[in-house]
């Protein structure tokens, strides 16, 4: 069992492209967090009082 960051470190240990793969991992984390943020905004719109 290995999550995204550990998998990234495994890949880096094979090809030594540390900066590039950490950047890719950062992008993937950003994508997950952006999806959560959009979901939060969607729920906020749903529960807001219409003005």
């Amino acid at each position: 069992m290995a999550e995204l960051l550990l998998r990234t470190q495994e890949i880096i240990s094979r090809n030594f492209m540390s900066l590039e793969f950490y950047f890719l991992a950062g992008l993937l984390y950003f994508a997950i967090n952006y999806a959560i943020e959009r979901f939060g905004k969607y729920v906020e719109r749903k529960v807001s009082v219409p003005s």
Partner: peptide, 23 residues
């Protein structure tokens, strides 16, 4: 070369991403 490495490691990255998302 980086894209080549990403393609080679695509399943490893996707497994890690899947585990992170599910946990």
């Amino acid at each position: 070369a980086f894209l080549d490495q990403v393609w080679l490691a695509r399943f490893v990255i996707l497994r890690g991403l899947g585990l992170t998302v599910s946990i």
